[in-house]
Computed example of a mutant assay.
Amino acid sequence: MSASPWFLREPSQESAARLFCLPYSGCGASMYRKWPRFLGDVEIVPVQPPGRENRFREEPYKSYEALADDLVEVLLPYLDRPFGLFGHCGSALPGYETAVRLQERGYPAPARLFVSSQIAPHDGPHGRFLEMTDAELADEVHTLIVELGGKPRPDLVELSLEILRADVETNKRYHPAEPVRLPCPITALGWDQDAEVDHRLMGSWTDCGETTFRVLEGPHYRFMEAPTELMDTLLAGLTP
């Protein structure tokens, strides 16, 4: 267990590097439960923002910028070794904003930012979720809970819908006019069967920093299964 509510467990002192992973829209940190704790000597550290799972009584952030403002201070004591940031779809954007804040405050820079299934910040907002009704979003929550291996009970669907709606509204408000170019390299990951974000729309990440593109096999939610090609890409990106 962790003394900080931002982590499900305290980051290990034995790791050579850390990968901080932000949860997908409508989800909490436990969505990474199928991922290994370590990739070689790189530790996977899921991040738990307010408003979800064990923090559901807390008010969720209304902007990615505000989330990043606080998250960098939480992460700072754990940036004593190489580290990366990972986000998929909506969570790729606060991952980017966190890297921006680290740069602005003169804190250690990530070894790499990994963004999966998301267009560049200045090209958004983007995605069919943005125009969905609550009933349509509830259907998506139902699907997501099943993908996570859970049972979509009505109370769980209702709670997850509140989180997802808040995340969708936050996404709608996010549209930086000009991207901040990061000092760290970026790996932009697309998925060849992704019905939500076509990987061919991700090209503008080059405006945000030196970017490497890779297209992986599978649909939008496949990342949750910790596919080998994704794990290999993450490990390679954090290995000197």
Rank of each mutant, 00 (worst) to 15 (best):
5 P>M: 04
6 W>D: 05
8 L>A: 02
9 R>K: 05
11 P>Q: 06
12 S>H: 11
13 Q>M: 02
18 R>F: 12
19 L>M: 08
21 C>H: 06
25 S>K: 07
26 G>T: 07
27 C>Y: 03
30 S>E: 09
30 S>D: 06
32 Y>V: 02
33 R>E: 09
34 K>H: 15
37 R>N: 11
38 F>R: 13
39 L>F: 01
43 E>V: 01
47 V>T: 02
47 V>M: 01
50 P>F: 01
50 P>M: 03
51 G>Q: 02
51 G>F: 02
51 G>I: 02
52 R>D: 01
57 R>G: 05
62 K>F: 03
62 K>E: 05
63 S>L: 01
63 S>C: 04
67 L>E: 04
68 A>I: 10
70 D>I: 10
73 E>F: 04
74 V>D: 04
75 L>C: 13
76 L>F: 12
77 P>K: 10
78 Y>L: 14
78 Y>T: 12
79 L>M: 14
80 D>H: 11
81 R>D: 12
82 P>H: 13
83 F>A: 06
85 L>C: 13
87 G>T: 07
88 H>I: 10
88 H>P: 03
96 Y>F: 13
97 E>N: 09
98 T>Q: 05
100 V>F: 08
102 L>P: 01
104 E>L: 07
106 G>T: 13
107 Y>P: 01
107 Y>C: 05
107 Y>K: 04
108 P>D: 14
109 A>D: 04
110 P>F: 15
110 P>H: 15
111 A>W: 06
112 R>S: 00
112 R>A: 04
114 F>L: 13
115 V>S: 14
116 S>H: 15
118 Q>L: 06
118 Q>H: 10
121 P>N: 05
123 D>L: 15
123 D>N: 11
126 H>V: 04
133 T>F: 14
134 D>P: 00
137 L>G: 05
139 D>L: 03
141 V>F: 00
145 I>E: 03
147 E>A: 11
148 L>A: 08
149 G>Y: 01
149 G>A: 10
150 G>Q: 10
152 P>T: 10
153 R>H: 09
154 P>G: 06
156 L>N: 03
156 L>Q: 06
163 I>F: 07
163 I>M: 07
164 L>Q: 06
166 A>D: 14
166 A>G: 15
167 D>N: 08
169 E>F: 05
172 K>D: 09
173 R>P: 01
175 H>W: 04
176 P>E: 02
179 P>E: 10
179 P>N: 08
183 P>G: 04
184 C>D: 05
186 I>M: 11
187 T>R: 00
193 Q>R: 03
194 D>I: 14
197 V>W: 00
200 R>G: 10
201 L>R: 15
203 G>A: 07
209 G>N: 06
210 E>S: 06
210 E>I: 07
211 T>F: 08
211 T>A: 14
211 T>D: 15
213 F>E: 08
214 R>S: 13
217 E>R: 14
219 P>F: 02
221 Y>C: 02
230 L>G: 05
232 D>Y: 01
234 L>N: 09
235 L>C: 07
235 L>E: 10
237 G>P: 09
240 P>I: 00
240 P>C: 00
